[in-house]
Design a protein around this nucleic acid. Sequence first.
DNA 1: GAGAAGTATAGATGTTAATCAATGGATAGC
DNA 2: GCTATCCATTGATTAACATCTATACTTCTC
Lengths: 320, 320
Amino acid sequence: MNIRHLTFRLLQVHVEVVRRGSVSEAARRLHLTQPTVSQQLKRLREAVGEPLLATRQGRLEPTEAGLELYRASREVLGRFDDFADYLGALRGGRRGHFSIALVNTAQYVLPRLLGPFNQAYPEVEVTVHIGNRQQMLRRFDRQEDDLYVFSHPPSLAHALAGRFLRNPLVMVVPRDHPATREPGWRLHRLLGERLLLREPGSATRMLTERWLLEQGQATGPTMQMASNEAIRVGVASGLGLAILSEHVLPPEHPDLVTLPVPGLPIESHWQFIARRDRRLAHSALGFLRFARDHLDDCVEARFLCNELPELLAGLEAVEA
Amino acid sequence: MNIRHLTFRLLQVHVEVVRRGSVSEAARRLHLTQPTVSQQLKRLREAVGEPLLATRQGRLEPTEAGLELYRASREVLGRFDDFADYLGALRGGRRGHFSIALVNTAQYVLPRLLGPFNQAYPEVEVTVHIGNRQQMLRRFDRQEDDLYVFSHPPSLAHALAGRFLRNPLVMVVPRDHPATREPGWRLHRLLGERLLLREPGSATRMLTERWLLEQGQATGPTMQMASNEAIRVGVASGLGLAILSEHVLPPEHPDLVTLPVPGLPIESHWQFIARRDRRLAHSALGFLRFARDHLDDCVEARFLCNELPELLAGLEAVEA
DNA sequence: GAGAAGTATAGATGTTAATCAATGGATAGC
DNA sequence: GCTATCCATTGATTAACATCTATACTTCTC
């Protein structure tokens, strides 16, 4: 038997003929003419190298080989029906896998979206990679993930972006800091104090440094700490001041105060980035649609900034 | 996904590429050129409607759809390997089914062949139909069986025959019959007695009547009984005489005597008959080969008459 | 034994598949 | 950054498929 000459179509025809016990009837059901079916059977018989059907009292009955082929064909066609279902689920975004890469700061918010998404699409697996901006840029360059979250996107030559969340950076000081009691405190005094900074490559640090430059003020000593957590705890313990994302602050923070500094908060946004040159996994697309539709249920209204409709429109244009 | 454009060949190629992680390597293994494989992959991708492979760190890895297709393909190809095995067994006569139709008298001998055959080929199923000559002729006309056993074959226009066993018909009388003590008994006296006959249509009866005619003797009363068993018991109980196949007599028969009548035994033979216009099941062919090779182990030497080599040669000529 | 229904074959045609050699563009390793 | 390797594409050719209409052949049925 030469499997290379078998096609699924031939198997379908064989199954139909065995079921109906008649070439003509099978032809009608398959919307073919009778000679076509006869010829397909002939080819199938030649491919298998055995007679597959025998006429017994006016009805076509499969031979032993024909019966076994019928069984095999049904299994095989059934298996591909299953595969088609799988594909359908994949395409509908109801199943599959995608990965998303976050800058550190975003990890405080994204679970609010991922949790409900997972409830709604339990068969979709999501891998989340977390790191600082530098690391995320590397992943982006290597196209390692389906989606990225940046506050300031890299070159958009090969990517599409859509904002989804405000990310205001505010000045945090210890609760007992003199400026909290002294209405007339001066910025240059404040900036003379020690500033706790994220490592270079962090977006928070970049924005902070740019803002400091804009202020045209001399700055005091700094201390570098590699995580938002560490900085927050550092400020609370009187180690210095810091400019941090509001999302980093816990809802209740008895040891900290955000200081209403003129020129602050630094307005930045998080955005979803998808590469334009790489086909997005259906499930990732499904996640973006979910985010678009449920963002306002998942995040506080004051942070809302839903530009995802535009992003999705852009992505769908790329598809076509 | 349009299943009509899928071929087993494409699946084989996909499986090989996924296994090797390389188009070129797969091409080498499949004895194809690299562009051929690339193009097959393209067709497959188009048939499925999804990307199936993605290059990840220098190696081709299947996408989710590609992985699922790989799984489906392996199952399906495996299923057809099984089918090929089944076909092999069928063709080798190691499995399958055939039916054989016997005239009544032959049922005393055929089990001697069928028993050992079943030991040697436990996966072959045999259906045995038993009846008198008339009934067997009907079955033969309708081509209902693979093999037939006749003592006198029907027209051989559409069939091939091969003798395999002598079937001598002898005169049986009760043990206490006068002729057994009286050396000078006369045939015409004997034939004046009641003769137990099989029903019309029976081969034994046909041969008996022809022999009686040849003797040119007037015959006495007759009684008709529908089975060899009944006749044997009838003779033993003094109901009359009979001409019976030696095979019908049990090894020990205290109530019966076979009388050495001049002109007896009537020499006849059993033969296997196979239709020439119907392809013989591989298993039936296997049975004939088995009979050819093991006949002398299965029957008494004095009945041996193995013309099966000729029959098989004839059948193989028909195949070609 | 004539008719009806079913099946097989033949001839024709447009489509698709299978395959190759040649070539251009990506990528990884040194 | 150069080079070898790999992959995709193009263009071409031959074979195979899918399908039809028309016709011939079987085989039940009445």
